[in-house]
Design a binder for these strands. Structure first.
Lengths: 254, 254
DNA sequence: CCAAAAGTGTTATGTCTACACCCATGA
DNA sequence: TCATGGGTGTAGACATAACACTTTTGG
């Protein structure tokens, strides 16, 4: 950050000790899988503005905590989940007038959880709900503030990160079948994936999934018991232009 | 954003009208190519704290402008570049104590330009400099505040975005040779790329570069004149797990 | 003519897709 | 034993990396 710089040239009109005051909030987009679809945790606002409208959970940052700690605190308050849940900062929003009361800049985090369903069911159903993201994206559910845009950005982030980071594993349990993991990819990307090829991609690629010896029990209709895996380091860097590591360093060609 | 929500349950200890006040600043990491290496524009701080130390340009956000507008304004102030330069928000930083004077949250932007060299040379050389990013990353140049981390994050962002967005084109002129473009990839990724294969990747992939009929004049040592291209829409979504669009929708396999 | 850089051809190797087929289970 | 999903095999299509070769310039 830092006040205006550049020596004495071009004074900025800002005295470092007289800066415009902002409220800083942290909002958390909480995503989870339910019913094979991507869902979003929303809370109903109890106070003006936008009273009674759905919004993503959030609150003021405290001067004594980091942004990440604030996000973790909000997540724990809303869901009771205290763990090292996957929390990713993905954007800051500060348009003038986005909050009619005052100047607010919000820093948005993405949290990926499993089993939020139980959490929501356990809390007061009137003011917290798990809704399909599609309904938030297409406007079926109207959101307070600029939260519609924030949710759009969050979903875009998940789509892009899914195959580059281990974020997919956060949607499923500590151990999971490849069918479960595949469902995450299918829901987030909105496509159908071939189970056979998906398995090969994911088990071939180093560091994605680690087989536990165990197998899951099949569901009602039977079927071969699926292998159970746990998450690996999951890291992958794909790219249209391949990096080459030739024997001799080459420049250009010829 | 939004005050604490969730009906009347669990009052937060925060009155919406009595929020902690923060200064919000916008910092811009300005990257450019020089001497076939990735460079970074730094300014020397003229005021405490960190007086005399190098820092990335930045300044207070005004309540009447968006974060993006603030970044654009800072960029223009520092470089004179007013154009629709590639400006990407990539992070927010708000650790307590990151600014010893007050509570500051900064939103960081990445700007990619060409020809910053001329701009820097034109200004007072004592308080602005173009330095290789490697020197900022390895600590050869010590930066004020948490700017070292901000620069690291910016470079990481460019590395990831290079082949997914059109950001590479922002490093070169409105028209460019493929050798110039390749130099960007090589500098940012720190690799050597085969010129022949690079050309194929980039001209085959739809929407990356568009041939102008013209050719560049070869340099001193001669060589065939290179074709001049301009940037296309440049978009690409690569992924380790392929999306398939089968004739019939399939689920799983069998 | 020579060196240097741009651009094209070529080939072995690897990866991906689609789908056939086998396996293990519940009912 | 039948339906259902899990898991393996595989052939053709396609993409990639490495490098030989041709083209076009400056000196």
């Amino acid at each position: 950050m830092g006040t205006k710089t550049r020596g004495g040239r071009a004074p900025e009109g800002y005295d470092p000790s007289k800066f415009p005051a902002f409220a800083v909030t942290v909002d958390v987009v909480i995503l989870t899988m339910a019913d094979s679809r991507l869902h979003l945790l929303l809370v109903r606002r109890g106070v003006a503005p936008f009273k009674g409208m759905w919004a993503i959970p959030g609150g003021f940052k405290r001067p004594t905590e980091t942004l990440g700690e604030a996000a973790k605190r909000e997540l724990a308050q809303e869901t009771g989940v205290d763990s090292a849940a996957m929390l990713t900062q993905f954007g800051a929003y500060g348009d003038p007038g986005r909050d009619p009361r005052m100047n607010v800049v919000t820093v948005a985090y993405l949290a990926v959880l499993r089993d939020v369903g139980a959490v929501v069911a356990g809390s007061d159903a009137a003011d917290a709900a798990l809704v399909p993201v599609s309904e938030a994206l297409d406007g079926t559910i109207e959101l307070a503030f600029d939260h519609a845009k924030i949710v759009r950005d969050a979903v875009e982030r998940v789509r892009g990160d899914l195959d580059l980071t281990g974020i997919a594993a956060a949607f499923v349990g500590p151990t999971f079948t490849l069918a479960e993991l595949r469902t995450v990819f299918e829901a987030v990307w909105g496509v159908q994936l071939d189970g056979a090829n998906f398995r090969r991609s994911v088990v071939t690629e180093e560091g994605w999934v680690i087989p536990t010896g165990r197998r899951a029990r099949p569901g009602a209709p039977g079927g071969k018991p699926a292998e159970l895996f746990r998450a690996g380091r999951m890291w992958k860097y794909s790219s249209p232009i391949r990096r080459s590591q030739p024997n001799e360093r080459r420049k250009g060609n010829s």
